[in-house]
Design a protein around this nucleic acid. Structure first.
Lengths: 162, 162
DNA sequence: TGCATTATCTGCACACATGCAGATATTAGG
DNA sequence: CCTAATATCTGCATGTGTGCAGATAATGCA
């Protein structure tokens, strides 16, 4: 590996670390646990999920998911609605107004990054936003990859314990 | 707010969200809680901290910090060393080898983002890395700002409870 | 209609992170 | 030296997130 390549790795690692810590702090400021923040993100991205779908996505049991929804609902971030087509199902939807709370948690980062972005030309800014829009799906895919691997590892460990 | 501005807000929000979720998944894969990941990041960034400094940084009590260090030590991420100048102090240092574990958790993101970056010209890549190196400190500052505000809010709430 | 299946919820137990108060060890100041 | 201050650790209690097993409600099929 060239030294330039190493530098890039270090810069990237440092950057990811900083963004990640910022996001965690934001979640904490919004009063959300990691699992809750993850669930809320999925719910709002999908425009609503059933309890079961959420359980599958988070890797939690259905029981734990019920409690997770309880907490999000009590905090005002989501609401329950019964699926009219199948009344056993519970549709969990994000409450639009409450997302402002999450938005507020990101505000400091937005302001500070805004200052950084202001130092670039409009053309350069456009490039950076192009990157943001392409990188987001890539990060989401990486997240699923990591979670899948983690779950697999946990399952293997459990199997060995028998 | 113009629609273009709104678009930018949405893109940025989405991007932060995706990076944050990825980081959390990485932390989970490494077997670390959010607070532990945050602590480890501070320790390795500072090249070693005392227990007290870590307590101040995380906002935890000294007792809780002792347990936090216990967990990180047991997991092999850090080691304790007594400060030769003041033997009351405990220096907490990151174990270099173990950081590979954390590095591995970031690997999927690095690979996928590498693919995205590969679609840009070398000049554009240079710009993006320039941004990374400038944005990281900005995100760290935002993190401290959020944490300070969160702690203040918690203190106020506690005061009202009396 | 009756029974199996599915979706969600509830009761119980457990693990674990954290705060608080007091204990221990070390240093600093008189 | 003796005492106060400082840094960390330990015992205890508490809140909370989660799994598991069984309960409840709704659907689908024979």
């Amino acid at each position: 590996m060239s030294t330039a390549e190493q530098d890039q790795r270090a810069i990237f690692r440092d950057y990811i670390d900083a963004v990640g810590l910022q996001a965690m702090a934001g979640a904490e400021a919004a009063g959300l646990q990691a699992s809750e923040w993850y669930a809320l993100s999925r719910i709002s991205a999908a425009g609503g999920l059933t309890s079961g779908e959420l359980a599958a996505g988070t890797g939690l049991t259905t029981g734990a998911t019920t409690r997770l929804i309880d907490r999000l609902e009590r905090a005002g971030y989501v609401r329950r609605a019964t699926d009219p087509a199948d009344r056993r199902k519970v549709l969990v939807e994000a409450v639009p107004d409450a997302l402002g709370e999450v938005e507020a948690a990101v505000a400091p980062a937005r302001r500070r990054i805004g200052e950084v972005l202001g130092e670039y030309t409009p053309e350069q800014q456009a490039l950076l936003f192009d990157y943001f829009s392409r990188a987001a799906p890539a990060f989401r895919a990486a997240t699923e990859e990591i979670r899948a691997a983690t779950r697999k590892k946990a399952a293997t460990r459990k199997k060995k314990e028998r």
